[in-house]
Amino acid sequence: MAKKENRTGDTASHVGFAGEHPRLEATSELLRELVSHLRQNRTQLREEWVRRITEARLLTAMSQEEIFAEATSVYDSYVEALETGTFEALQSYARNLSERIIPRGVETHEVVGIVLLLRDVLARSLFAKYQTDFEKLNRILDAYEPAANRIANTVAVGFVQERERVIRQQQEAIRELSTPVLQVRERLLILPIIGVIDPQRARQLTEQLLRGIRTNRAKVVVIDITGVAAMDATVANHLVQTVEASRLLGATVIVTGLSPEIAQTLVTIGVELGKMNTVGDLQGGIEQAERLLGYKVVPIS
């Protein structure tokens, strides 16, 4: 006799051997009956569900065929979860589904919505089937409800977790993007800095640039600070450190986009501009970088 876990949520949930407990025996008996009903009416119930999804204007980012295909998979995993009482397959399907639909803009309320719709569609079909036997209907619903709740919960939580993971990943990507190290020519990198520089970002920027210098074997780096909002002593010192660290790796840094105000600030706080290679604008900086690299720019015509 197999040990079977009965996960029925808050009402009378027990773990024990089937047969040992009359009520438990009855529950699994009822779920078996329920499962066979859902299997027999698979086509019709699935279509009904998809119709309700469309009607409720859920999953609008997906085509009808896609909705139908996903609905089929969810339906089958759903029935399987009811039958076996194990949620792993459903859980992994929910994660997989979320991974595919999150990039297409499917929202949490839509996912919760479709699962609740399925629950409703199935409950209605149970009403229809057992409407003549009220007693039995009650017992079936008692067996079905907790399992259905748990399934809805599993799918929704799976979706939300996946969404959070995607958001974290995107934040990381945005951070990386906000300090892009671009290779414009062989051995020449450009680092356009935009926005506010705090110590953490300054550090990230420097580390990224140093790694970039090594992987691209860069000889010259143009740091463009046209987009830097403000420059105080701390930020200025970070900039100087970035220039110095790059030189330790054998790369020459040209700083461009230094506004007169920022130049003034740097002089006031004692940064020796003479140590820094500065050129008015990005274009001029790239030209100088090319000269340093030995490129000669010749008009084609």
Partner: peptide
Amino acid sequence: VGIQPEVAFAMVQLGLTLEGVATALDLEEG
């Protein structure tokens, strides 16, 4: 030649910049 990125980062934090000494990425570059 061959100062590692992490080492360079730590050096400038300490204010060590090898001023006046030529540097290169690696032996080949040197």
